[in-house]
C-alpha cells in the first residue's frame, strides 16, 4: 500500500489573532473528518524533542514540516482501519477554567457518529492532543506526570522550553502532548490540561494577552481483539473549527513604574542598612 501523507496544517494556530473571550469559546457545528495517516508501531509521538534539538523556537511552518516529513508517513499494515468516518468530530469547545496564574485549559470534542450507531465500540482508541503553547504559558511536566500516576492521563509529555521558573521574556514556546483513553461508549473526548502563566513582559497597558491556538488531534485505534503491535493512526483536522482560540489575560508590570520602584527600593535598602549600622554602633 502506498504512503499516505497528509499535507494539512496549513492554518497557523499562532498567526491567528482572532481572540475570543477567555472563558467561553463558541461551538462550531461543522464536521471534521479524520484522515488516515497509516500504521505505526510506536505508541508515543516523540518528534517534539527532535524538533527542538534543531530549532531554538517554536515556529509553526517549521514544525508543520517536521510533522509532515517525520510523522505523517506511516505505511499501511494488516488490520488498518479504513472505516474512519466514525472518528469524525462535530464540535470543539475550548475555554479556560479558574482564575489567576494557574488554570486548566478545557477541551471537549464531540464525536460526530454516536457509538450506538457506528462501530466505534468495536475499537479501542487513544486520543492524543497536541497543544502548542506560546512563551507566556507552560505546562509543568512534573505535575503532568503526577496526573499520569493518578490515571488522569495515559501519558503526558512536554517538549521544548520546560523551564518552570523563567519569565516570559526569557522563555520559548513548548509543545505539550497528552494521551487520554477513549471509552468505547464515549460520545466525546474531554481533556483538562493544567497550565501556568509565566510573568509577562512589562507593558504600558498593565496586561498581556496570551493566545493559545487550536490543538492538533490524533487518534490511535485498533480493533478489539486484533493481535500485533500496530495501530491505525488518524489525524483530525481542527481547521474547520475556526473559533477555537483561547486568550489568557495576564497582569503585567507598568513600564512607567520601573524607575520609581528602583529608586524607592534602593533608597529603602540604603536607609535601613544605615539605621542598622548606627543602632549597632550606639548599642550599649
Amino acid at each position: 500500500m502506498g504512503l499516505m501523507v497528509l499535507s494539512i496544517w496549513c492554518i497557523s494556530a499562532f498567526s491567528n489573532t482572532d481572540g475570543s473571550a477567555p472563558q467561553v469559546s463558541p461551538t462550531n457545528k461543522e464536521i471534521s473528518n479524520p484522515s488516515v495517516m497509516g500504521c505505526l508501531l510506536s505508541l508515543h509521538y516523540d518528534h517534539g524533542d527532535s524538533y527542538f534539538y534543531n530549532h531554538s523556537g517554536l515556529s509553526d511552518p517549521e514544525f508543520n514540516d517536521v510533522l509532515n516529513l517525520d510523522i505523517l508517513s506511516g505505511d499501511s499494515c494488516d488490520g488498518i482501519i479504513y472505516d474512519i468516518e466514525m472518528f469524525g468530530l462535530s464540535s470543539l469547545t475550548r475555554y479556560l477554567i479558574g482564575e489567576g496564574s494557574h488554570r486548566q485549559l478545557f477541551t471537549s470534542m464531540l464525536f460526530d457518529n454516536q457509538p450506538e450507531t457506528a462501530k466505534f465500540h468495536e475499537h479501542s482508541c487513544v486520543g492524543i492532543l497536541i497543544e502548542r503553547l506560546p512563551a507566556g504559558v507552560f505546562a509543568d511536566h512534573f505535575q503532568l506526570q503526577h496526573l499520569v500516576d493518578h490515571n488522569v492521563f495515559l501519558g503526558a509529555y512536554v517538549h521544548g522550553d520546560r523551564n518552570l521558573e523563567l519569565p516570559s521574556a526569557l522563555s520559548n514556546g513548548s509543545i505539550v502532548e497528552v494521551h487520554t483513553n477513549i471509552r468505547s461508549d464515549a460520545d466525546k473526548l474531554v481533556v483538562r490540561l493544567p497550565l501556568h502563566a509565566r510573568y509577562p513582559p512589562i507593558d504600558s497597558s498593565g496586561y498581556a494577552n496570551i493566545t493559545i491556538g487550536r490543538p492538533d488531534v490524533f487518534m490511535r485505534c485498533r480493533q478489539k481483539g486484533s493481535k500485533g503491535g500496530y495501530f491505525s493512526w488518524f489525524f483530525i483536522d481542527m481547521g474547520s473549527f475556526s473559533k477555537s482560540i483561547v486568550t489568557w489575560r495576564i497582569p503585567s508590570g507598568y513600564e512607567a513604574h520601573a524607575w520609581v520602584v528602583t529608586t524607592v527600593t534602593f533608597l529603602s535598602a540604603l536607609v535601613c542598612s544605615v539605621l542598622i549600622i548606627l543602632s549597632s554602633l550606639y548599642f550599649m
Binding site: 521574556a169 526569557l170 510573568y199 520602584v261 528602583t262 527600593t265
Partner: peptide, 15 residues
C-alpha cells in the same frame, strides 16, 4: 517572581 524580598519587583520590572 513574587517573593518576600524587597528587590523582587525591581528585578521583575528590569529583567
Amino acid at each position: 517572581r513574587h517573593n518576600f524580598s524587597i528587590y523582587f519587583y525591581h528585578i521583575y520590572l528590569r529583567h
